[in-house]
């Protein structure tokens, strides 16, 4: 049972994070909440990527005094490197989006997207 949960908590959990984020993006009216949804999706995808490279009992791929490349199981380093990239880009996009939101709030005095009609007909 624990074993099953462990498996699901990474695969299922990351998918759940993505879906929750997607639901927020589609239904929420508040711009900040939409961005929180996007951020959740980002996190979910990162978790999914990292969990694809997990090895049972594996350790971080760093060579130290007791560990060399043959003596222990390393987890896959490539997803980790990719996710490192992904996180930084996520932060950058989030910051940019928040800057746009600040500007939108200055212009419309609201964060409710149903009232922001500048780009709509």
């Amino acid at each position: 049972m624990i074993d099953f949960l462990e498996k699901w908590s990474f695969f299922g959990g990351s998918v759940l994070l993505i879906l929750i984020g997607l639901y927020g993006v589609i239904t929420r009216k508040n711009l900040i909440k939409i961005f929180i949804g996007l951020s959740l999706m980002d996190t979910g995808i990162n978790v999914l990527l990292v969990s694809l490279g997990y090895v049972e009992g594996g350790i971080a791929p760093i060579i130290t005094s007791t560990i060399n490349n043959n003596s222990y199981n390393f987890v896959d380093p490539i997803p980790q490197a990719l996710v490192l990239t992904s996180i930084v880009i996520g932060v950058a996009v989030l910051a940019l989006g928040l800057g746009v939101i600040i500007k939108i709030y200055e212009k419309y005095n609201t964060l409710d997207i149903s009232e922001i009609r500048g780009l709509r007909w």
Binding site: L22, V25, I26, T27, I34, I113, S114, L119, R120, W121
Partner: peptide
């Protein structure tokens, strides 16, 4: 058609993608 489907709301389009 325009008012019911092409709403001009980004969220609706995101929904269409899903």
């Amino acid at each position: 058609f325009r008012k019911s489907i092409v709403t001009g709301n980004g969220q609706t389009y995101a929904f269409y993608m899903v």
